Simulated scan of single mutants.
Amino acid sequence: MPRERGQKVVASNRKARHDYLIIDVYEAGMSLTGPEVKSLRAGRASLVDGYATIEGGEVWLENVHIPEYTQATWNNGPSRRRRKLLLHGHEIYKLMGKIKESGYTLVPLSIYFKDGRAKVEIALAKGKREYDKRQTLKERQDTLEASRAMSTKGKDW
Rank of each mutant, 00 (worst) to 15 (best):
R129L: 07
L137D: 15
M96A: 14
G34L: 07
R44G: 02
I66L: 09
R82L: 04
V107S: 15
Y104M: 07
S110M: 12
P2T: 13
R83A: 02
T136E: 12
A28F: 08
A72D: 08
A146H: 11
D19P: 00
T105L: 00
T53M: 07
G6W: 08
A125Y: 03
R81H: 04
D156M: 13
A42T: 08
S39T: 12
R41F: 02
A149N: 05
W157S: 03
L144S: 09
I66G: 01
L87K: 04
K153M: 12
Y104E: 07
R129H: 11
A125H: 08
A52W: 00
K15L: 03
I23E: 15
P108T: 13
N13G: 03
Y131P: 00
Q71A: 13
V10I: 15
R80S: 08
T70Y: 15
E121P: 00
D19C: 06
N76C: 07
V120A: 02
Q7D: 05
D115K: 07
V9E: 12
L87V: 01
D142S: 11
R134K: 13
L95M: 14
S31E: 15
L137F: 02
T152H: 05
E121A: 12
V9T: 13
T70L: 15
K114Q: 06
T136K: 10
R5T: 01
G103T: 12
P35Y: 03
I54E: 11
Q141A: 14
E62F: 01
R148I: 14
S110E: 11
G43L: 10
A123H: 09
S102A: 14
E36R: 09
K84F: 00
H18L: 11
